[in-house]
Design a protein around this nucleic acid. Structure first.
Length: 805
DNA sequence: AGCACGCCGACT
DNA sequence: GTCGGCGTGCTC
């Protein structure tokens, strides 16, 4: 058993298999399955994951593992198996699957260096070569490239005077803290003190401290500050062997300076009681079950989560709670930390790589029992999972758009099945797929149709903005909305204004000829950013100044379309100068902690109006909000996506739920240009069931999920014809491998037909049951492997895509 | 991916 | 004759 199978850190089709390495004698028993190791690969050194340990290999000349990178495995058996499953279901590389399950800090960094060899004869080595190194031990390869030394140095490499060194480095260091302590007992310390000379006042002071304090290690800096002594005093005592110093590892705690008030379980409403019963039964019975917790906004889903977790902890097991990134607010964290204290780890994108790593290690060392986090927290390395909760399960952010293109909901169900524990999918507006599964009995439906305290759902008014325009109101506020805003300002109640910027955000257009400024590299309009007067492409990063006149017709009437939050803010200042507005969008919340600060200000009543985009649609729960205004309900209704109606409905319902959550009654005004569309109309009625039925008919008619599964193959190439012809071949091939029931639509241009000067074509596969599809797709990728390596061809496969772009 | 090897045209 | 362009094939 001295051979390790290793998956190496090279994301390529040919390398997507295990490579065998000898475990050197001194590492026998040290190297374990699931550890990261450094291995030689061709001429370089790279990182790899040990997936098996065995006695023999089909290969003769095996190289040796250089060294392990971990003391204990970073992937347990459960996660390794999950990695295999991810590879199978999303068609990604094994290495990508493993890396996505681990914090970014564990991904290797590579350094390539040049160094003068020991064998080199310095006398004969030319001055210019030695000059390049300038007495340094090594220089970075990158430096040699930039300064043009490469060809000279490479000659020396062949002569053996200079060598190339490959290094594998860790991305972050563990945070360390210096502490001092003593092993000497109290009585001995007293006698040591008596032995000190009379001048050693400071040393006596330190000993006095330890006589009181005992043998616990204490932070050096803390001690110095406390006693007003310098480190030389400590050093003196260390020389005498009285004090000892060591470094201990500490976690970076992003919530260090905050206290969370302890909360206790609240009494449950009848709805909550009914919902939690089957969940508790499943926890008790150690059984896998999938629950869809369908509860209207304000029905108290979180309390159901909290009490379910309570039960799980009592059973000595662990809990994962997934929350969409944008609602992973301090408010949310507070609820979990308040109930479970420091048993909770939090993982979200606002943390630094090091902070994420530390939170992850707390989980791995079983120091916490609950993790609250965004999508990737689904891979938390727990050993004894007792429940997985996905809040707002319909959110699109649960689907990762890069490889591996996984959906956290699928991973959750897979993990829960192996751990025999329940999954709770919670939402006020479940994804159509989820609700359909609940209808079919695949998920168990738990309904909470009433708000806590039986508050009425807010009254919703839908305003036809075409009508407003017809009657001469060209402002972005309808008369009714404006009136209601004024009314709330008078009553000192708070208002939330929601702007759905997705869809067409502010683009630049000529008013005379209709010319829209597009990206030169991509077939998409440039987005206007006011803060630097620039237009930017969101796909390739291209930036340009706003032209002074139209490049087509030379007209100077070039202006910005689409309403940005800044523009709304300006208009508010104009018509309601007395109102105090807080604006929340990517610009005002990009700085760390800004999000929280703005919300706190609003909560404390420092503003009347909270104006924002997507990020204010969720989780806000302030008692004084009595009016919610949606400025433009239908901006994303016209996107080329079969889910656009569903997204519109979900968003509108979600936003409406922000109003009147407490004693004061709430009102919602939705402004739209398509009031007759069922997603707007039914969001107004807050009628999920009817929306579900309506939308299901549409999906059935057009053969979309949940009636059909879909997979999307996107092909891109610099040459249009190449992209088309490859897509055509793929479409024909895949179709030939499927049953007659399956439909392959292609080649068609992608919704964004060109990105970064690459043409994009796609093939959409709709199917009900095609066990052969995965194999066919893999074979197709294998077939094009060479062309993808060298020919500049890119093929991406997304099984169950969320957006068809 | 990233590297070596090898074959071909362009230059001191 | 040598340098450097990139196409091809391999990595336990």
């Amino acid at each position: 058993m001295n051979i390790a199978s290793v998956i190496v850190d090279v994301p390529a089709r040919q390398i997507d298999k295990t490579f065998d390495y000898l475990i050197p004698e001194h590492l026998l028993g040290v190297i374990q399955i699931g550890m990261r190791v450094i291995v030689p690969f061709g001429p370089r050194k790279i990182q790899g994951f040990v997936t098996a340990i065995k006695g023999e290999s089909a290969f003769k000349q095996l190289k040796k593992i250089i060294e392990p990178m971990d003391l204990t495995p970073v992937l347990n058996q459960d996660l390794l198996a999950l990695g295999d499953w991810l590879t199978e279901t999303t068609l990604c590389y094994k290495i990508s699957a493993y890396q996505v399950m681990l914090p970014a800090a564990l991904k290797a960094k590579y350094e390539k260096k040049l160094r003068i060899t020991k064998a080199a004869n310095l006398e004969k080595l030319f001055d210019d070569i030695q000059g390049i190194f300038a007495n340094r031990d090594h220089i970075l390869w990158q430096e040699a490239v930039e300064k043009g030394f490469l060809s000279v140095l490479q000659k020396e490499v062949t002569k053996g005077n200079v060598e190339i060194i490959y290094e594998v480095k860790e991305r972050v260091k563990k945070k360390k803290r210096k502490v001092v302590f003593t092993k000497i007992s109290r009585d001995e310390l007293i006698s040591e003190k008596a032995g000190l000379t009379a001048q050693a006042i400071k040393q006596q002071k330190v000993l006095d401290f330890f006589i009181q304090y005992g043998n616990e290690p204490i932070d050096v800096h803390e001690l110095l500050a406390k006693l007003g002594v310098t480190s030389s005093v400590i050093n003196g005592l260390m020389k005498k062997g009285i004090l000892l110093q060591k470094e201990i590892e500490v976690y970076r705690d992003p919530y260090e300076d905050r206290t969370f008030t302890k909360s206790n379980p609240l009494p449950l409403t009848a709805d909550q009681e009914n919902a939690i019963k089957p969940i508790l039964a499943s926890i008790q019975g150690h059984e896998h079950a999938n629950f869809l917790l369908y509860g209207v906004t304000g029905s108290g889903k979180t309390e159901v989560y909290l009490q379910s977790i309570q039960k799980v902890l009592e059973k000595g097991r662990e809990a994962i709670v997934l929350v969409p990134e944008i609602s992973l607010t301090p408010q949310m964290v507070k609820r979990f930390k308040g109930r479970f204290g420091d048993q909770v780890a939090v993982l979200h994108s606002g943390l630094s790589i090091g902070e994420k790593y530390d939170e992850w290690r707390k989980i791995q060392r079983q120091e916490v029992k609950v993790v609250v986090g965004a999508r990737s927290a689904i891979f938390a390395p727990f050993q004894n999972l007792g429940i997985i909760i996905i809040d707002e399960e319909h959110e699109t952010s649960y689907k990762q758009e890069e490889n591996p293109k996984y959906h956290a909901r699928d991973v959750a169900i897979q993990r829960a099945a192996t751990h025999r524990c329940p999954v709770i999918l919670g939402s006020a507006t479940p994804a159509l797929e989820s609700f359909a599964r609940a209808q079919k009995g695949v998920y168990q439906l738990l309904s909470m149709p009433k708000r806590m305290n039986n508050q009425a759902l807010p009254a919703v008014k839908i305003i036809d903005m075409r009508e407003e325009l017809r009657e001469g109101n060209r402002s972005m506020f309808s008369r009714m909305l404006l009136e209601k805003i004024k009314d709330r300002l008078e009553k000192k109640e708070q208002i939330v204004l929601f702007l759905n910027k997705r869809g067409h955000s502010s683009f630049v257009m000529c008013r005379d000829c209709g010319y829209v400024v597009n990206c030169p590299n991509c077939d998409i309009s440039l987005t206007y950013h006011r803060f630097n007067q620039q237009m930017k492409c969101h796909y390739c990063g291209y930036e340009a100044h706003v032209p002074g006149h139209c490049p087509e017709c030379q007209s100077e009437h070039i202006r910005y379309f689409g309403t940005g939050t800044q523009k709304v803010e300006e208009e508010l200042a104009k018509i309601l100068p007395e109102s105090r507005v807080i604006r929340m969008d990517v610009d005002t919340t990009s700085r760390k902690g800004a999000h929280e600060r703005l919300l706190d200000q609003f909560q404390e009543g420092h503003a009347d109006i909270l104006l924002g985009t997507q990020m204010i649609a969720k989780g806000l729960d302030f008692p004084n909000i009595t009016l919610v205004g949606v400025l433009s309900a239908d901006t994303m209704l016209h996107l080329p996506d079969f889910r656009s109606s569903e997204k519109t409905f979900q968003l509108l319902t979600q936003v409406s739920g922000r109003a009147g959550r407490h004693e004061l009654e709430g009102e919602v005004v939705i402004q739209t240009y398509t009031p007759e569309h069922y997603s707007v109309e039914l969001a107004g009625d807050q009628d999920y069931r009817r929306f579900y039925e309506q939308e299901m008919m549409v999906r059935k008619l057009h053969k979309y999920p949940p009636f059909y599964f879909i997979s999307l193959v996107t092909v891109s190439h610099e040459e249009l014809m190449k992209a088309v012809s490859v897509t055509e071949k793929i479409t024909t091939y895949i179709q030939s491998k499927l049953s007659r029931e399956a439909i392959c639509l292609g080649p068609v241009a992608s919704p964004i037909p060109r990105i970064n000067n690459r043409y994009r074509y796609q093939c959409l596969i709709k199917y009900k049951r095609e066990p052969g599809l995965g194999h066919a797709l893999k074979k197709m990728l294998d077939h094009y492997q060479q062309e993808m390596n060298s020919g500049g061809l890119q093929i991406s496969v997304d099984v169950n895509p969320f957006i068809l772009m």
